[in-house]
Structure formats: C-alpha cells, structure tokens
Design a protein around this nucleic acid. Structure first.
Length: 275
DNA sequence: CCGGAGGCCTGATGGC
DNA sequence: TGCCATCAGGCCTCCG
C-alpha cells in the first residue's frame, strides 16, 4: 500500500531514471476510469507536452508539464499501484501508459484498477485539500497540534485524514502511534503537549525510516509494493506493530491486539498504548 | 461535525 | 483439491 515513503521513492527513482524533460508522444489507456473517464480527452491533453518536473504532494505524484499552458498529470497509486518506466510495451495490469520520445513507456500498473492518472490545468485545489507535509522542515509539534484542534475524533482517524495531515496511511499511522505509545482511539484533542511532541517525532522517524528502507513491501503478490525497478522495499523488516496481531509486542511482550478504527485494521500494544 | 456504510476492484486467504 | 465467501484498504459520496 503506497503511502508517503513509497510515493517519495517512486518519484526519486523516476527522476533518476531520466523522466524529467521527456516529451510525451501519446497515451495508451486500457481502463478509462484511470484517466478520469475520457481516454481521448486525456490523450489529447498530454500528447506533445514535455515533462518539466516531477515531485509529490501527500500521496500524489505530480508531473508538471512544460507550459504554456500550465498543465499537470496527477497520479495516485491508491491500493496496488506502481509507476515505472519500461522499454517494453505495457503488459497485463497496466491501466494507462504514456509513450515517451526516448521509446520508453511510463506505465501505471494497477491490478485492482484503483489507481488514477489524470490531467489537470491546475493543482491549487489539490494543495488546499491537503494538510501539511510531515517531512517538510517547517513541520513542527505546533503544526501537528493544530491538526488536532477542533475535533474529538480518534487520533488514528485524524492521522489518516489527508486534509489534516498529508501522506500517512494505515501502516505508518499504526507504527507512529506505537512508537509514540499512544492508543489509536485517544481523542486527538486529549493529547498532552508531551504526547504531541512524541507523536511528532514518531511520525517523522517512521516516514524517514520508510524512505531509507525504500518502502514497505507488505502487500500480497501482485499487489505488493515495489520500486519502479521492480525491487522490493525492506521496511517490512522494521515494522514493529502493523499486522502483528497475536504476536508479542517487540517492546514489552504483551500480545498485540487488532481493532477496527475508521474502517481500517488497527494494531496496537494494549500495555504500551493504554486507553 | 461526525461516523458509518457502500462503492470501486481483484488477488490472497481461509473454511469446509 | 476445489469452490466460495471474505478480507484488504485509499478515497470518495451519500446518509443519518
């Protein structure tokens, strides 16, 4: 399940592979919904455009097109998506692909068809819909505290709310709460200053570790995350609590519990993370 | 404001 | 072994 670290390293890998400054010659769309429902409109919008830059915002991958006019290709991997460059004709499960002027294809692989690759004339609305970036230098405990104001929702629910804070998904939410020793159902506004500080440090740490480890490959088979190169990440070896239901807590030995929060499987240690 | 359900999807999994 | 129901979950929309 690609979250901020997986998206981050996907962007870095594509940049290293020379995606920037390539000319898009056309688009192949296998599943219309992937590109917003209208393959012809998508192809027309991107054909002949040059890729000026690539980065990410939250879990979104942003391909800025050289203007004028301003234009962007916004990619979201959702559950099972991967984005990679390939010299070969797009194969099974590739829902959309851009053919580039160097003969390669930028392929959006998505067994479950959830992933999206859409053309936008602006991304301002995306920025306003998303909360702060947890790995930006200005992300402080105070900023995190402001994510929790004015709501009594569970802290895990807030961490998953992209409009409150961008980029965190189910795995890293559980890992951060475990590291900070905070129960996932604690009301966000009930957290003390010290707990906010601990959670802030934990969020930054688990995301940075995820990036250093080249992502978490905890999916199953075809849905498993891997780098654009096809290489698996190794952050799953550093996972402390996620999907360890019934196993001893790595910190205290207490049996890890699984509950459902915000309709997601949620894993925690009942002793290290008391209610 | 909030939470819950349903929808989108299909490979993996577990029960019988 | 094989079949089938269930699960997984990011994000959106609808509903109470």
């Amino acid at each position: 399940m690609p979250e901020l670290p997986e998206v981050h390293i996907t962007v870095a890998a594509l940049r290293d592979a020379g995606l920037v400054s390539r000319l898009i010659q056309g688009a192949q769309v296998e599943w219309p919904r992937t590109v917003g429902g209208d393959p012809k409109a998508f192809s027309a919008a991107v054909a002949g455009r040059r890729i000026a830059d690539i980065w990410r915002r939250g879990k979104y991958i942003l391909l800025q097109l050289k203007g004028p006019p301003a234009g962007w290709i916004v990619v979201h991997l959702r559950m099972s998506g991967r984005l990679y460059l390939s010299a070969e004709t797009p194969g099974e499960y590739v829902r959309a692909a851009l053919n580039l002027d160097d003969g390669r294809f930028l392929c959006l692989y998505a067994p479950r068809r959830f992933a999206r690759m859409e053309y936008r004339q602006e991304i301002e609305s995306l920025h306003t819909r998303l909360g702060p970036e947890p790995l930006e230098p200005d992300f402080s405990p105070d900023i995190l505290a402001s994510c929790f104001t004015g709501t009594r929702r569970a802290v895990k629910t807030i961490l998953l709310d992209q409009s409150r804070i961008a980029g965190i998904g189910n795995i890293y939410a559980d890992e951060a709460l475990f590291q900070a020793e905070i129960h996932p159902c604690r009301a966000g506004e009930s957290l003390s200053e010290a707990e906010i500080a601990a959670l802030h440090a934990a969020i930054v740490a688990v995301l940075q570790r995820g990036i250093q480890n080249l992502g978490t490959s905890l999916g199953h088979g075809k849905s498993n995350f891997s780098l654009p190169s096809g290489e698996a990440g190794r952050n799953q070896e550093d996972i402390r609590v996620f999907r360890r239901t019934g196993l001893p807590c790595v910190r205290c030995g207490t049996t890890v519990q699984r509950i459902v929060v915000a309709q997601r499987g949620t894993h925690y240690c009942p002793r290290c993370q008391p209610p």
